[in-house]
Design a protein around this nucleic acid. Sequence first.
DNA 1: GTATGCGATACTGTATACATCAACGAGTAC
DNA 2: GTACTCGTTGATGTATACAGTATCGCATAC
Lengths: 237, 237
Amino acid sequence: MTAAVPDGPDADLSKADLVHRRLKEEIELGELAPGTPLSELSLVERTGASRTPVREALRRLAAEGLVDLVPRQGARVSRVSLQSVRDLFDFRGLLEPAAIRQATEAAGADPELRRAFSSMRGEFVRIQRRAPSQARSRAFYELADRFDWAVIGATRNEHLRRTIAELRPHTARLRNLSHVDPQRVDVSVAEHLVICDAVLGGDADEAARRTAEHLAQSVATIFRNLASGPGAGLDLN
Amino acid sequence: MTAAVPDGPDADLSKADLVHRRLKEEIELGELAPGTPLSELSLVERTGASRTPVREALRRLAAEGLVDLVPRQGARVSRVSLQSVRDLFDFRGLLEPAAIRQATEAAGADPELRRAFSSMRGEFVRIQRRAPSQARSRAFYELADRFDWAVIGATRNEHLRRTIAELRPHTARLRNLSHVDPQRVDVSVAEHLVICDAVLGGDADEAARRTAEHLAQSVATIFRNLASGPGAGLDLN
DNA sequence: GTATGCGATACTGTATACATCAACGAGTAC
DNA sequence: GTACTCGTTGATGTATACAGTATCGCATAC
């Protein structure tokens, strides 16, 4: 339940911002399943805001590809197809190696950034040593998220930075809609470690190559899992 | 002057769409210079629409990076800095070679698409043979535009396609804000011809390489021109 | 039983009134 | 002369009323 106090920590955020953020989170977490209709009036009831900010939030989500908007018909949570997963990861495979390259160069010139990557490397090692468990998986994904954001933050090119940031909710949603393979965590931790080493070693090419490999492995795992047990709320077409 | 008839060819487009398109064109053409304030009320007067569609158009333009939106302060046409030009072309250099690769593969399987590229190749040759003139330059840019849209249309990956399409207004604006170098047209025509040949020959790698080269040449020319004569309405910082 | 037409319903698209806030300038105290 | 306060102005943020339209169910004709 969101606090209804007039002066929360988000006092300077507009209602449109709040509605946008809330819906984005719910879509990311899979609480709003793909295909769910989102009529403006129902959102007015659910959020307490009026139609104007709700409308703006929906348009923004549509621009990010999280919502499909049909003129004079309404909005639905966007669907996830096998093709869209392929497209997403192919595109990330194009962008993220370039981003990690920029991040590697930035780390070479910025001791603080290097410290941050070094610190995350230590955390990956600690996670690697833990026994498999739900908590460990959660800790890993939380850390992997921080790692990704660090890379995004170190990406100089604004277009590249914004585009990658915009893809993140799609990836996160996919993870939350499909089953997580505990086996995958071990491999993924190892992949992140190798990338960390390349970044800290200043080897941009190596970092880029390993990032591309990591993405290829990720999408392969996802497709394997989808083939065995169909994830909840995914259209398989 | 836009027709004011109630049932034009755009009868099914919403006013928000119309305002958005109109402003986008004016920004692209440089009629609205970078930094121009765009208050909602002034746009209401200019466009005849009410604040709601105007607002939506502004938000959309902001999402596309053509307008800067400061909360509780207003909107301005986004500024163009040297860094933003570098970022734009670096990013295009990442995306467009990948797109032309997909287009080349698509052309290999689609005779009609191949015919389209072949036809445009012929037009490039005809332009090459003309004597330099304003009209020739205009014809070239119009054709180059069609060529780019053909590539975009042949790009399978939806993320890639949409992202490239979103960058086009930025490139167009740059061209319209800076002086066009007639010398450049000859070189650029030749570069397009080489790319056409690679596409028609089914050599995706070659097409990608030539596209990257073409972009590098383009940005180099732009910087040279900016260094000599500062283009109208550009912030040089 | 099936298909077609009509009407009720609920939604989006638009306009506009109101609330709130930042920027600017006049006036005054010092 | 300078700095500060306060009121004015015009902008955005929000709420809501109204208009137009797609959709769905039901009745009716065949």
